[in-house]
Amino acid sequence: MASLGCAQEYRAIVHWRGGSLPFTSPGVSALTSVSWNRTLNDTSEASITIAKGAAGAECCAQLGQIEPFAHDLSIYRDSELVWQGPVFRVTESRRRFVIEAHDVTEWLARTVNTTLLRYVSTNPADPKRQSPIQQIAESVIRENLAGGLYASSPDWPKMLPYIVRQDDTVTARFEKDGTADNEIWIVPILRILDEELVPRGLEYTTVGRALVLGRSQTTADPAQARLTLDSFAGDVEIVRDGTNAASLVWVTNQEDQDISGSQFGVSGVVSGYYGRLDHLIRTTAEGLTAYDLWQIARGSYTGRHPVPTSLRIPDGAGLATTAPVSMRQLVPGVRIDVAATGMCMGLSQPYRLSDVDVDWGENGENVGVSLIPIGDPFVGDPP
């Protein structure tokens, strides 16, 4: 059985854009601290701190030539690549040199959409047909990065070969266009993912250079690991919180002052156990149909019913080195089961990993994780 273990060393390499051709690498002795994270539906960050005195004059001269977005930062835990993305900022003081980077989704935040977003066809031969939302997300990314009038070269961030998908079981219909169905929504690609596709069930994260386009895990998905309280270094808290609980999720485009012509979508169950427990989402997005609103309601229902029981890990605590899970299994979105015996709220249930936060320095390595309850999606028919 794999275990997390304890990192013997961290190495950092600065590559040219694309993550293949090395540019420079500070010696291990010059690397004084490393931090990196993985996160769900957001851009992760990493930073390294280099002691200039230990780096030497030749390395220092190369560090001074690092350019944001022209270079990538790669971080290795022992021999395993655990993080990679474009350099975002470099800061030099008298004694140290700091390199900060964002993961490859930063390129999606810096690239404006120039394609028509109209996935409404039911023709199986149409490349822009109704599809799982993960397939639509990949199509939007590929069409924008493959080339075109404003591209310096095809796939200049070198992302397209590293897209990984786990498709939903339902087909989505998505469009974002003007009244003549031929206008292009000129916004960053990442905004399309965050505002339009994530509410419909998309989840995204990065591991190394890979961009993972996935879906919410359910109780039918296998667990990547099974942890107990002994798997955590430090205290943990079990919290059963009704703040975000709901048995019915409603989504409407209704305005408070003008309710004419408005529509709504609803997803969930009528609960005899909890009584009437509704959650209302108002959206100001234009052009949404009742089907669109139902998709958003379905995507927002997961994890609300039954009332979620969360495992809270205080700051400063983390996984024990003996935890039966490897670093490559710690991918945001995967299922991890936890059994907490000996507690009043006896806990044994599946969770989803939402964040991994790693710090390494003179005190060694700390691997923090955040877990959120798994909830099965509502599987009823659309309107």
Rank of each mutant, 00 (worst) to 15 (best):
V251R: 10
T252C: 08
T252Y: 04
N253Q: 02
Q254V: 03
Q254H: 07
D256G: 13
Q257T: 15
I259Q: 14
G261F: 09
G261D: 12
G261V: 01
S262A: 13
F264L: 05
G265I: 09
G265V: 01
G265W: 11
S267Q: 00
S267C: 11
V269N: 05
V270K: 04
S271A: 10
Y273P: 00
Y274M: 10
Y274H: 12
G275E: 10
R276D: 13
D278G: 09
D278V: 06
H279Q: 05
L280M: 07
I281S: 03
I281F: 01
R282N: 10
A285P: 02
E286T: 12
E286K: 11
G287Q: 05
Y291D: 12
L293S: 00
L293P: 03
L293G: 04
W294P: 02
R298P: 08
R298M: 03
R298H: 02
G299C: 08
T302C: 08
T302H: 04
G303H: 06
R304M: 09
H305Q: 07
P306F: 11
V307D: 09
T309I: 12
R312S: 15
P314K: 11
P314M: 10
D315V: 09
G316R: 08
G316H: 12
G316V: 02
G316P: 01
L319S: 00
A320R: 01
A320C: 03
A320D: 15
A320G: 15
T321A: 15
T321I: 11
T322E: 13
A323Q: 08
A323G: 11
P324A: 10
P324T: 12
V325W: 12
S326Y: 13
M327A: 07
R328G: 04
V331I: 14
V331F: 04
V331S: 04
V331Y: 11
P332K: 02
P332C: 05
P332Y: 06
G333W: 05
G333A: 06
G333M: 04
R335Q: 07
I336H: 07
I336K: 06
D337M: 12
D337Q: 11
A340I: 14
T341M: 02
T341E: 12
T341Q: 10
G342C: 10
M343A: 11
M343S: 08
M343E: 13
G346S: 12
L347E: 02
L347N: 06
S348R: 15
Y351L: 15
R352E: 13
L353C: 07
L353K: 06
S354E: 14
S354F: 05
D355E: 14
D357N: 11
V358D: 01
D359G: 15
D359P: 00
D359H: 14
W360A: 14
G361I: 00
E362M: 10
N363R: 14
G364Y: 01
E365W: 08
N366G: 03
N366K: 14
V369T: 05
S370H: 09
